[in-house]
Nucleic acid binder design. Structure first.
Lengths: 336, 336
DNA sequence: GCGAGTGATCGAATCGATTCGACCGGAAGG
DNA sequence: CCTTCCGGTCGAATCGATTCGATCACTCGC
C-alpha cells in the first residue's frame, strides 16, 4: 500500500520500474487514483476555500464587482491547488441566517465577500468552527484578515470635487442598509438602523466632505434598475439636487439612465458620480465619473492572504488605494 | 465515541440528558462539532458537486446565461445539502487542457456548463475517475445526462420568420468555434474546424431554415463588445445584410449598438435577432427579438438530475422548450 | 419473583490514504 | 572478507467519524 501511495504521489524514493508496475496494476484493477477523501482526512486539509458571497448567488453574480474580485481570487488560488466552494450569503430574511454549508462544509479557509455587519452570524459560526477567515471590505477585527480599500477617503474626495464645482444640493444613493432589502428615502430612524459596514463607510465619506445630503436613497441591491428608480424619485421634483453621489457604478449608471428618461441632461442638468471604476461596454461613449478600485488586485490580495493563513501565519490586513476617474457624467453645477 | 456521534447527528436513539451532557462536554473541551472530512470519508460522499464553467471564471461570470443557470443549480442543490465547487473550464491554450481540480478534487457529481467538444479531455478525465456527469447543452452521449434546449429548432424558426419578412441577405454572428478564441469572418476551412457542439447546432438552425448566410462571423466570447465589432465589420459596406441572426443576446445587443454607431436604424435598416431571452435593463426601452430559453429552469433541471444520479439512478437526458420573443429589433426587410 | 422485552449506551470494525520507522539487498570502503 | 551505508520496499499506526451488533439496565407482565 505504501509503495502504491508513493507511485501515485511521486513523493519519496521509488524505482521507475516499480512505479510502472504499480500503475499497470492500477489500470488492470480499474483503480482510478487515490481517493481525495482519504488523502484529505490524512492530511487534515481539504484544499477547499469557502467563498461566501454577499447575497443570493443570482444577485451576487449580476454584480460585476463581486465577479471581478472572485476572478482575482480563483486565479490566485487555482495554481495553489485550492478550489473555491461557493456559499450563498445572507439574503431573504425568511431563510436561515446562516447557510448550512457554513456549518457543515469542509474548508481550510473562508472568505467573506462583503463587509458584513458588526456582529455577523456567519462570522461567528466560522470562528466557532475555528476556520481562519478573510474579510473583503469588513471593519477591522483584531484577529481577522481584512482586505479593504480606501473607499471612505475616495468618496470624500470626489464629493469635495463636486463642492468645488459649485454643487450645494447633493443627494446620495446607497447600497443596502440591512439584509431586509428595503428601498426608498432614508429618515433618521432608518439611518440608525444601518447595519452594513460598507454602506456606512461610504456614507461617512460624504459626511467627511462636509456635505449634508439633501436626500439619502437606499437601494435593495447594486443594480442598474434600482439606480433608475432612485433617479425617478429624486430628480422628478422642481428643486432637485444638482449632483448625485452613488455608492456603486451600476447605481450611478442607472441614475444617469433614469435622469435621461426624465429629460434631463447629464452632466449639464445633474452630475452623477459612481464608485468602482467599472468598464461598462453598453454605457459608451459616456464614461462614468467614478472612484475606481483595483478589483482584480483585491481578489489577488485575498488569494495571497488565504495562502498566508494556510501557512499558519497570523492574519494581516491590507488597504488598497482608490483612484478618481473623471469621466463625462459630472461637471459644474447648473447656474440658476 | 458512538454516543457522541449520535448526540451530534441526532440519528438514532439517545436520551435528551445524555445528549446534553455530550454537548456540554464538547463545549468545555472546545470541540466544535464533527470534522466534515471524517464524516465524508466514512459516508463515501463529499457532498460536493463540481461545476466546470465553460471558460476562465472571469469570462464565464460576465455571461448572464451562465449566471442564471448556475443560480438555478445552486438553488436546487443548496437545500439538498450539496455545495458547488467552481472549476474553470478550458480557456487559454497555454494553460493545461484540464484544470487539476478535475483530476484531484473530491466531488460526487460533476456538471459541465457548456456543450464541450466531441471528445472533450475534461469529460474523459471525469469518466476515468468514474464521476457521474451532467452536461449542459452537450451532444447526446449514450450514458451521460444531457440537459439541453431546442435551440436548433428555435433558431430555424426565427430565421424563417425573417424570410417571411422579406429578408434575403442574412448574416449570422456565432459563438466561438474552438478554445483558441479567434474573431472574424468564417471561411470554408474554418467551418470545418468548428469544434464546439453548441455553436454548430445553432448554426445548423440557420441552415435548417434554408438560408445560406451571406456572412458568418465568429466571436471569441458572448460579450457586447464582440457583437459591436461584428456589426462594424459586417454592416459598414454598401451591400450590407438586412438581417443578422446572433447566437446570443449579448452579441445581438452589441450588433444593435454597433449598427447605431454606424448611423443605421434598427429595425428599419437592419433587423437583429438574438438568442437566450435575457432581460437587459440598460437596453430599455428596446426589447431584443430573441429565442428565449428557460435559464433558471435549466439550472433547476440540472440540480434535479444531479440528485437522481446521486440516488444511483441511470442518467436521463432532457430537452427544454424555447419560445420566440418578438421585440423591437426585427421587422420587415427595407425596400431597396 | 423471574423472564421477556425495550430503549439506551458502548465496542470495534471500517472508510482510504499517508508516513514514519523498520527492514532488506547490494555496493562501496577498509 | 567484513562492515557500513544507502536506495528502495514494506508494516503498521493514524487521521475522525459512522454504524452494526452486543451489552446493559430497567420495566412490565405473569
Amino acid at each position: 500500500m505504501s509503495t502504491a501511495s508513493l507511485a501515485f504521489s511521486g513523493a519519496g524514493p521509488i524505482a521507475a520500474a516499480t512505479r510502472q508496475r504499480v500503475l499497470d496494476a492500477a489500470q488492470a484493477l480499474g483503480y482510478a487514483g487515490p481517493n481525495p477523501l482519504g488523502r484529505q482526512l490524512r492530511r487534515g486539509r481539504s484544499g477547499i476555500v469557502g467563498v461566501i458571497v454577499g447575497d443570493a448567488l443570482r444577485r451576487a453574480f449580476r454584480d460585476p464587482v463581486s465577479i471581478q474580485v472572485l476572478d482575482g481570487i480563483t486565479s490566485t488560488l487555482g495554481p495553489m491547488g485550492l478550489g473555491v466552494l461557493l456559499i450563498a450569503g445572507p439574503h431573504d430574511p425568511t431563510d436561515p441566517p446562516v447557510d448550512p454549508l457554513v456549518e457543515l462544509a469542509a474548508m481550510d479557509v473562508a472568505v467573506m465577500m462583503w463587509g458584513g455587519t458588526t456582529d455577523d452570524p456567519v462570522l461567528s459560526a466560522l470562528r466557532r468552527r475555528g476556520i481562519p477567515t478573510v474579510l473583503v471590505e469588513g471593519s477591522r477585527h483584531p484577529d481577522i484578515s481584512v482586505i479593504g480599500i480606501a473607499d471612505r477617503a475616495g468618496i470624500a474626495d470626489v464629493t469635495r470635487q463636486l463642492l468645488g464645482l459649485g454643487h450645494t444640493c447633493i443627494a446620495t444613493v446607497t447600497l443596502p442598509f440591512t439584509n431586509d432589502r428595503s428601498e426608498g428615502l432614508v429618515d433618521a430612524a432608518r439611518l440608525d438602523a444601518l447595519e452594513w459596514e460598507l454602506t456606512r463607510r461610504r456614507l461617512d465619506g460624504v459626511f467627511d466632505a462636509g456635505v449634508q445630503p439633501v436626500a439619502i436613497w437606499e437601494t435593495p441591491a447594486s443594480l442598474v434598475e434600482h439606480g433608475a428608480s432612485a433617479a425617478r424619485a429624486l430628480l422628478a421634483g422642481p428643486d432637485r439636487p444638482t449632483a448625485v453621489v452613488c455608492q456603486s457604478d451600476l447605481l450611478a449608471a442607472g441614475v444617469v439612465l433614469g435622469a435621461r428618461e426624465l429629460g434631463l441632461q447629464v452632466p449639464q442638468d445633474v452630475s452623477v458620480v459612481g464608485f468602482d471604476g467599472l468598464d461598462l461596454p453598453w454605457f459608451k461613449p459616456d464614461v462614468l465619473t467614478s472612484v475606481a478600485q483595483p478589483l482584480a488586485e483585491k481578489g489577488r490580495a485575498v488569494g495571497r492572504e488565504v495562502a498566508r493563513l494556510l501557512e499558519g501565519e497570523p492574519p494581516q490586513s491590507l488597504d488598497l488605494p482608490v483612484e478618481l476617474v473623471w469621466g463625462t457624467t459630472a461637471g459644474p453645477a447648473p447656474t440658476v
